[in-house]
Write a protein that binds this DNA or RNA. Structure first.
Lengths: 329, 329
DNA sequence: GTGAAAGCGCTAACAA
DNA sequence: TTGTTAGCGCTTTCAC
């Protein structure tokens, strides 16, 4: 920095101001300094800068799983908001492992990020709670009841209700549900399904088949249904993958979708939109989740400590896997 | 740190040693210091530490697009190697935009990462070149001819050859290719296809149809083929998405796959393995690419400056979309 | 806009 | 093992 000041023929203090993009520096000074800096190949040392300034203007974003495009969309929303507010986003991945997540959070904390955003994270609540006491923390995608932190997620129970309502409107009464076992979101989706069936007077027709969010589980569920006396006229699967597995099992048995059985999935995964599959499904406002979570965090960082828990509305996407109920339904 | 030393009843220097996991600290000292640290809620300030040590033991990994699972697998390979070597990996995403990529690299450089890994990046070569002069840099997934940097990628021409050979072995002679336009990897795949056709004496039967790596393009290509006098008996698509679009178009026209037309894709995307699709395709060793790239970078960081350019072998994955040539082929 | 001075919290080199 | 002594490269404050 010393050298840059000399090269530009100004003071060290001015160089510092320019590098920080302070409005106190005149336009010509700015130019002179930048020119000198690039001539010398100088660039500010963030470690030194952060150390002296005692803040980093950085937020750490922990993504549970890079393989899942869900997180990519949340990250897009986060980046958008954070950058507009002048924060750098640094990413880390938990690779589906709580201990890796935990180390990532430690790294964020050691790096003195100004705030932390966790997307779909699985580490123990107590661990997160502890982190939240060091720095503002918001969870995206998973509702966390913890104190001192915020969360933004989609309303899974509502999503399930939308799926059931859609099928009911198509005339279906025998609507089964393939659930997601102990997976994330499985419980509220199942509860939402049961509540919705009851609300339309179909509690007696409700039927939950165990699954685990895999294609394989959807396939098994399909084979199970096919062995029974009466085939339901519609199935609501807890995610798209099991919906596809189910459709496959039905197809192998010569059962037409949606002619004989309608199918609705959940998540609006990328492949759901492939023409070849055309799955009706429930879409989560992933981008909005990211935006809101980032907004909440940025607001908290700016002093207005308004960490709350918000639920966003999912919506139905209708494609070719759902249709009118068959005659004998 | 001062406080921790007091609390543990030891010297500041020892605390520093313990926090750095130096073997010079005795086991009991280690325990005492850790206990004191957690009692006081102390954690090392990485900014200060990096500043004083003048290295960060960190490598920056720039992923071109989080939405593409390709990068997730590369990242897995990178993490695995980097962590074993004691490096922290910090992630950033280019969001498919060269300017965003460029800013991410600037941030890495300002943070004084020890090395940079770029996966599938699109920023101007000159820009990367400049970065490579500040710090060791390796490109994964894209071969970069630049000096002072390494690269690890898959051999696309070989992948195309594998696809053609597979179809030839099944008895096909009329093998068309839907290409990827100006997309990444499109050119070598097309060239590999043409070379392979020529190598087996089928240069006259070679047929390239323009595409752009989308499902829509595959669909259009299918409709185009269907309008022609003779339908090829097999099609090699430059990626899975266009292969699926093609299969869809064929299906709509009542053409059976693989009974009448065999289809091979490229990339082994997650949906290719769905039973419902069952696409034969070319798989890239994504995980290996990440591992090798990280290994190359770590090696360079350890002084043995062996940055080179390596090509890894892709392989064929056979599923249900390819089969014996139809009788009149 | 400048210059000086005082750290930020840590590592590193050395002597004890 | 320990205490000491210098910085690392920057921001901040304050008087000028």
């Amino acid at each position: 920095m010393e050298d840059v000041a000399a090269e530009a023929g100004v003071s060290r203090a001015l160089v510092s101001l320019v590098m920080r993009e302070s409005p106190q520096a005149s336009a010509k000074a700015r130019l002179a300094v930048h020119a000198a800096a690039s001539r010398l190949g100088y660039r500010r040392n963030l470690a030194a800068s952060n150390l002296a300034a005692r803040r980093t203007m950085t937020i750490g974003l922990l993504l549970n799983d890079l393989h899942n495009p869900w997180y990519a969309e949340v990250a897009d929303g986060v980046h958008q908001v954070a950058e507009r507010a002048g924060f750098q986003v640094v990413l880390a991945t938990g690779r589906r492992s709580p201990s890796v997540e935990s180390r990532a959070v430690d790294h964020f904390l050691a790096s003195r990020v100004d705030g932390i955003l966790v997307a779909g994270c699985r580490m123990p609540l107590a661990r997160l709670q502890a982190a939240a006491h060091e720095v503002p923390l918001v969870s995206a995608g998973r509702t966390l009841a913890g104190a001192a932190m915020g969360s933004v997620s989609a309303d899974d129970a509502l999503g399930a209700r939308l799926a059931v309502q859609h099928l009911v409107e198509l005339g279906h009464r025998h609507i089964a549900h393939i659930d997601g076992g102990r997976g994330a979101g499985s419980a509220p989706r199942r509860a939402g399904y049961l509540a919705a069936m009851e609300a339309v007077g179909l509690a007696a027709q409700a039927r939950v088949i165990a699954g685990d969010f895999t294609e394989e589980a959807g396939n098994r569920a399909g084979q199970k249904l096919l062995r029974e006396a009466v085939l339901p006229t519609a199935v609501f699967a807890a995610n798209d993958l099991s919906a596809v597995g189910l459709i496959d099992a039905l197809g192998d048995a010569g059962v037409h979708v949606p002619g004989q059985v309608s199918v609705v999935g959940y998540d609006n995964t990328s492949f759901a939109g492939l023409h070849h599959i055309g799955l009706s499904t429930i879409d989560q406002p992933r981008h909005r989740i990211g935006q809101m979570a980032a907004t909440m965090l940025v607001t908290a960082l700016q002093g207005d400590d308004g960490l709350t828990h918000v639920h966003l509305r999912p919506h139905l996407v209708t494609r070719s896997s759902s249709g009118a109920c068959r005659a004998d339904g």
